[in-house]
C-alpha cells in the first residue's frame, strides 16, 4: 500500500444560516504517501485543526471522503482509528495527576496494547525524550516543555503507522522546540512512520517536513515539496539596494502591486526585498522604481526561506 491518507473534497461548515455560518474547511483534497512527513501550514484560523479533527472523526465533516491506510471513514472507522494516533491539544491531552509512565501505560492499554508489548517501547520513548528522571513524577509538576513531550510520547507509543500532530511546538521555548523537532525527525525516519503535522510557524515546518500544504481560509493554496518551494522562490526573491529613498517624498502603492514587498530604510539609502514571480515582473518593478526617482545601486538574488514564500503566498491570496 502506498497511500497512507487520502482526503477528497473535505468540507466543514460550522453553524447555519448566512449570518452564523463559518466555512472552516472548503473542499480540501490531498493525499499523503506512506512514510511521508507532511506539514499543514497556515495562519491561525486557517482550518488546520478542523481538518485534522475531521479526518479523525472528532468533528463530523459536512462533506467529503476520507481514507486512512485504505480504511474508509464511514465504513471502517474502527480500523481507521486503530491505525492513527494524535496529539491534539498538546499537554491538555494528558492526565496531569498521573506520571509520564502511568500516562503511557494508560493510553497504550486504551488502544488495546498489553503492557508486556507496550512497556519496552514506552521506556525507549522516555529515554529518547529525556524524560527518564521524571518518569515517576506527576505530570502536573513537570515544565510545560516536558508536558508537551509526554503528550507527543503518548501518541507515538501507540506505534500506529500514521501520526497526527496539531501544533506540537506551540508555546515551547526555542530550545525545547528544536529538541522536539529533532526527535520527531529522527523517529519518523527510523521507523518510517507517516507524520501529518500542523503549525502556524513556517520555521517548524521547514525544519521537519518534506512536503508542505499551505492552507488559508479553509482552502489549500500550495501543496508542494519544501525544497521545490524554496527552489522556486530562490529564483524569484530579490533584494534591491537603493542609493536614495528615505529623503524622497514617495508614496506609491508598490506594496499592492508587488505583494510581500518589505522596505528597510538604511540611513541615507534603502533596501527593498521583494518576490517577483515572472521575469516581466522584474522589469515592471524596475520601471516603477525609476518612475519614483529611486536609484538602484545593486540587485541581489536572495536565499529564500519558507517564511518569505509563505508570507508572499498568503498575502497574494488575500
Amino acid at each position: 500500500m502506498h497511500v497512507a491518507l487520502r482526503v477528497t473534497d473535505l468540507t466543514k461548515t460550522f453553524g447555519r444560516g448566512k449570518k452564523y455560518e463559518v466555512q472552516a474547511v472548503r473542499g480540501v483534497s490531498f493525499g499523503v504517501k506512506n512514510g511521508e512527513i507532511v506539514g499543514l501550514l497556515g495562519p491561525n484560523g486557517a482550518g488546520k485543526t478542523t481538518t485534522i479533527k475531521c479526518i479523525l472523526g472528532l468533528m463530523l465533516p459536512t462533506r467529503g471522503q476520507i481514507e486512512v491506510m485504505g480504511y474508509d471513514f464511514h465504513r471502517q472507522y474502527r480500523q481507521l482509528v486503530r491505525s492513527t494516533s494524535a496529539v491534539l491539544e498538546g499537554s491538555r491531552n494528558l492526565y496531569w495527576r498521573l506520571s509520564p509512565r502511568e500516562n503511557l501505560d494508560f493510553f497504550t492499554g486504551l488502544h488495546g496494547i498489553p503492557l508486556a508489548l507496550s512497556r519496552p517501547y514506552s521506556e525507549h520513548l522516555l529515554r529518547v525524550f529525556g524524560l527518564e528522571v521524571k518518569k515517576d513524577a506527576v505530570v502536573q509538576e513537570l515544565s510545560s516543555g516536558m508536558k508537551q513531550k509526554v503528550a507527543v510520547a503518548c501518541a507515538l507509543a501507540l506505534r500506529t503507522p500514521v501520526v497526527f500532530l496539531d501544533e506540537p511546538t506551540l508555546g515551547l521555548d526555542v530550545e525545547t522546540s528544536y529538541e522536539l523537532r529533532d526527535i520527531l525527525k529522527r523517529l519518523a525516519r527510523e521507523e518510517g512512520r507517516t507524520l501529518v503535522m500542523s503549525s502556524h510557524d513556517m520555521d517548524v515546518i521547514q525544519d521537519v517536513c518534506e512536503r508542505v500544504i499551505i492552507i488559508k481560509d479553509g482552502s489549500i493554496i500550495v501543496d508542494d515539496r519544501v525544497d521545490n518551494l524554496l527552489e522556486v522562490f530562490r529564483t524569484r526573491s530579490y533584494r534591491f539596494t537603493l542609493s536614495n529613498g528615505p529623503g524622497l517624498d514617495w508614496h506609491f502603492d508598490l506594496g499592492k502591486k508587488f505583494p510581500g514587498l518589505t522596505v528597510i530604510p538604511q540611513g541615507e539609502s534603502m533596501i527593498l526585498e521583494v518576490t517577483l514571480p515572472r521575469p516581466s515582473d522584474l522589469y515592471a518593478f524596475m520601471d516603477a522604481l525609476r518612475d519614483q526617482g529611486l536609484i538602484v545601486e545593486g540587485i541581489h538574488q536572495e536565499e529564500p526561506d519558507l517564511e518569505k514564500a509563505f508570507l508572499y503566498l498568503v498575502r497574494k491570496g488575500a
Partner: peptide, 18 residues
C-alpha cells in the same frame, strides 16, 4: 474540559466501551 475526552474517543474499542 481538561482536553482528554477526545483521546477516549480515539480508541479502537470505541468510547462507549471505554
Amino acid at each position: 474540559q481538561m482536553g482528554t475526552l477526545e483521546k477516549l474517543y480515539l480508541t479502537p474499542i470505541g468510547f462507549s466501551w471505554v
